[in-house]
């Protein structure tokens, strides 16, 4: 029998979105905190109007904070999807016609829909408070932030599958702060720290999102440097981490099935 292709179950997605909208604490960390960080380090910084590549510092910080908010959202959704399924909701769904693919479609939609919230909010704030770049840079960086955030739903998924608790998922979201510092997101790194940063998960993602204005040029705390990342470097970083997270998630799912 031909199975219908997994289409989005809109009722399920709508209920999921309502669920997230009631969770004000999570929403604060997803949208509120990065928005405030943008206002502090982006728009109200003295050097906010200083040029960075084809944009300015405010734009550069805006992209960074939107990316941080977006990955906080997708990590949380991915992690909770794993924990829910293992806490018996998976068995409940196993008694319905919904396929695994259908579930993935709903959760993917929900994680993108939630990731859009910090991106839209912070880009809006950016537009109002002096972030400057070409229109195409606004569009491309926004799309890269959104698409790249999907990789971190795999990170959340893997952590959820591994530790099987809501606490672990919160910890995974929290760990993004550290990964953001290590990944050159919050504060421009240099020297050895920058060399290390290039291997960490958020580095490639954020570097790609900034690429439309920086063209790969690196920024230090005191202004532009002469160092430039070729495009392949952030792409490779993101792809490798995507493969690591996906591989880990697949391995953990298989291990879980064997124990059933």
């Amino acid at each position: 029998m031909n199975r219908p292709a997994a289409v989005l179950n809109t009722t399920y997605a709508a209920i999921e979105l309502r669920r997230v909208s009631r969770d004000l604490v999570s929403l604060f960390f997803i949208a509120g905190l990065p928005a405030v960080l943008y206002l502090i380090f982006g728009s109200s910084a003295e050097d906010s109007a200083v040029r960075v590549g084809d944009g300015n510092v405010a734009f550069y910080v805006m992209v960074s904070m939107a990316a941080y908010g977006a990955v906080t959202a997708t990590t949380g959704v991915g992690g909770m999807a794993a924990v829910e399924r293992m806490q018996g909701w998976g068995r409940q769904l196993g008694l319905t016609p919904m396929s695994d693919a259908g579930f993935v479609v709903v959760k993917t939609f929900v994680s993108f829909a939630i990731a859009v919230v910090p991106i839209a909010l912070i880009y809006l704030l950016g537009g109002l408070t002096g972030a400057e770049a070409d229109p195409s840079s606004w569009l491309i960086s926004g799309l890269v932030v959104l698409a790249g955030a999907a990789v971190f739903s795999l990170y959340g998924l893997a952590v959820g599958l591994m530790f099987r608790s809501e606490g672990a998922v919160s910890a995974a979201s929290g760990s993004l702060v550290i990964l953001a510092f290590l990944g050159n997101v919050f504060f421009p790194l240099s020297g050895l720290m920058l060399d290390i940063a290039r291997f960490t998960p958020l580095y490639g993602y954020v570097a790609l999102a900034r690429y439309p204005i920086t063209g790969g040029e690196l920024v230090s705390a005191t202004g532009p440097t002469s160092e430039t990342d070729p495009l392949w470097l952030p792409v490779l970083n993101l792809v490798v981490w995507a493969i690591i997270f996906a591989g880990l998630a697949v391995w953990l799912v298989r291990r879980g099935r064997g124990r059933q």
Binding site: R19, D23, G88, W89, Q92
Partner: peptide
Amino acid sequence: VLQTGGLLRDL
């Protein structure tokens, strides 16, 4: 009706 059928607590 499963013994361990989980429900989502915040729904």
